[in-house]
């Protein structure tokens, strides 16, 4: 179970040492202050690239479970699952972004994201961890991002040695998955 990502696991979610380091470098001891200047983002991998969804939109992260295919939906809608009595649609983010399909494997996870009354589970290759991204280091979407993805991106977050594509969850969720 070591690959299970538990958002309630303090060591993971708050990344204490990292926070401490930040606090030291900026002479701030109160974690609350951090919140104003940093976005907490769940980082995940999609075809070797790091993407992020704001933690406030993430309801939970689950291992892939058996889903039920729904006819007459867009190709990237894999089906629906039962999440404690609620029916949640599952979307393969690779297909949604026009990337090569990858079969579900041991590292695959479903990120259950929500906004208003919309709730969708996104299949991703792998969950990294929760990152703190300084708000001022978030830059607008660079022009070289493929058109298929562009409208779902709200910006790019720069960290010391990594960059992360931050997703615009609203546009992802509210587009809907039914065929008209």
């Amino acid at each position: 179970m070591k690959d299970e990502v538990d958002l309630f696991d303090k060591s993971l979610a708050i990344a204490e040492d990292y926070e401490e380091q930040l606090a030291k470098s900026q002479r701030k001891s109160d974690a609350l202050i951090l919140k104003d200047e940093y976005d907490q983002v769940v980082g995940f991998i999609l075809k070797d690239e790091l993407f992020g969804i704001d933690i406030l939109n993430v309801e939970e992260i689950i291992k892939p479970v058996d889903f039920t295919y729904v006819p007459n939906t867009k190709p990237f809608v894999m089906g629906v699952i039962n999440l404690r009595g609620k029916i949640i649609p599952i979307v393969d983010l690779r297909l949604k972004f026009g990337l090569v399909k990858k079969p579900i494997d041991i590292e695959s996870r479903i990120i259950v994201a929500h906004m208003d009354e919309y709730t969708v589970g996104f299949i991703v290759d792998k969950i990294e961890r929760v990152y703190y991204i300084e708000k001022k280091s978030i830059e607008p979407t660079p022009p070289n991002i493929p058109q298929t993805i562009e409208k779902y991106v709200r910006g790019v977050g720069k960290m010391d040695n990594k960059i992360m594509t931050l997703l615009n969850i609203e546009s992802l969720l509210k587009e809907g998955g039914g065929l008209n």
Partner: peptide
């Protein structure tokens, strides 16, 4: 009977789901 939720509305031939 349960609804498929807001993301999947008016799906042709499907009226809902059950567990």
């Amino acid at each position: 009977i349960k609804s498929l939720g807001h993301y999947l509305t008016n799906i042709k031939s499907i009226s809902g789901a059950t567990i």
